[in-house]
Design a protein around this nucleic acid. Structure first.
Lengths: 248, 248
DNA sequence: CAGTGGTCTAGACCACGTA
DNA sequence: ACGTGGTCTAGACCACTGT
């Protein structure tokens, strides 16, 4: 096969060929040289340009599809995608890690630990049968001496029976669950709300103060493992989400 | 090559082989059969089990690495990863789409449109030189007759000079920018805050009411294109983020 | 040193959709 | 019908690293 000139001869010298192809094309797209809808070269053309086999080109383009940068249609070719709904990666950290990242000492208090059966209200939000054994807990996470976050958690003991035997006075339930249970899906709902009387008392803030609430449900093998509501006291508390289209 | 028994003979009949291998392994991991740290079979073993070439097995395992489910070490093998920080996909929709999804009529008012040069305060948050031309806009998005969201936006005219010529009375700046500019990175900060006097007036809510604030900065080719602060009036407004480790 | 994964090749057959 | 991408093969060489 004839080895044509390499498109980028002044680029980083190393890295794999398929990675080179990917970054070359990514650069063309994010810089706007290839606008949305533009047809990118056929596989056999890239094969010649880079002097490599079709498999290598295909791997590079397949990963661009995964990253959402291009779409491919048989018999038509590959095209730069029109930007759609923006999607961002939201990192949900362990609360202990969060607090320590602020340079503050961390501790937490378990204020409630209750074993009960599921009722009708749980069915809606938790997707469990009535009377399924649940472990209900409330705890407050501290940053230094100030309350940082109120955690209200339900654990489905039908899926995680070991949780009943754990003394969560020492181990935070979130950290224990992450280490213990393989989870396959999670849903987060993020909203703002004014602190009600009980929340204000627990977090030692004024009633009516704005709070950031994160509600998370976690599934494993199609069953809900746990549901947690995290209420952040600090008005300054911020979630950060980042996005880069190529995933790099 | 000897074709050994297929591990899953009661599964979905179709799909590609590498997809089958991937889902088989994913199932083992998320179900807990293979706990974190467990070594998954070597490539040559899977090659025999599935009666396929090493390339196919390798592709399946490579995608599991991408998905963050496993990690691979030369000479050691491939291992189920210990779950780390949770990461969720946060979808950021166009506001018009958001409102219409609620079944409410959408419109918006442009209440400010100001051409000015960057000052020192912009430098911190916007990463632009002093006197860079900026377009500053404020608008209110309505759901039905109620204010839904307050948008305060800055556009860097050095990177998007065409924006100066657009009449944003008809086209919302967010929608125009997404269609116009290829963006390569975005950062979102999400927090709760009490409405100040101006915000409360713009959104027709009580001063001090809890609001959800999303601040977004968007880059293209290393330069900031736009910075926007979205303040949601509705206490009930919720962002939803989902996660599935295998990306499926 | 031996065995693992990382990458690549030069083919091949097939599914699919546009012309 | 034809050319595209989708998938797969049966090898190969190399880098790395644990024993």
């Amino acid at each position: 096969m004839a080895v044509a000139d390499q498109p980028t001869d002044d680029e980083a010298p190393s890295a794999s060929l398929n990675h080179r192809i990917r970054t070359d094309i990514t650069e063309k797209i994010v810089s706007g040289i290839w606008p949305p809808g533009h047809r990118i070269p056929f596989e056999h053309v890239l094969t010649e340009q880079y002097g490599c086999s079709r498999m290598t080109v295909n791997k590079a383009l397949s990963e661009l599809v995964r990253a959402g940068l291009i779409e491919r249609r048989r018999r038509s070719g590959s095209f730069v995608r029109h930007p759609q709904s923006q999607a961002a990666i939201l990192e949900i950290h362990d609360i202990k890690t969060e607090v320590q990242a602020l340079g503050l000492p961390y501790h937490y208090d378990l204020t409630e630990r209750l074993l009960r059966g599921a009722d009708a209200a749980d069915y809606d939000s938790f997707e469990v049968e009535t009377d399924t054994p649940l472990l209900q807990m409330t705890c407050v996470h501290f940053a230094g001496e100030r309350p940082y976050c109120l955690e209200e958690r339900l654990i489905n003991l039908a899926t995680v029976p070991e949780a009943e035997t754990i003394d969560f006075a020492d181990t935070a339930p979130g950290a224990w669950l992450i280490a213990q249970v393989p989870w396959s899906a999670a849903e987060h709902k993020i909203r703002a709300a004014s602190a009600d009387r009980a929340t204000a008392k627990a977090l030692d803030i004024a009633k009516g103060a704005a709070c950031l609430i994160v509600e998370r449900r976690t599934w494993s093998s199609g069953k809900v493992i746990t549901k947690v509501r995290l209420t952040y006291a600090t008005e300054g508390h911020t979630l950060v989400a980042r996005f880069a289209p190529s995933g790099e």
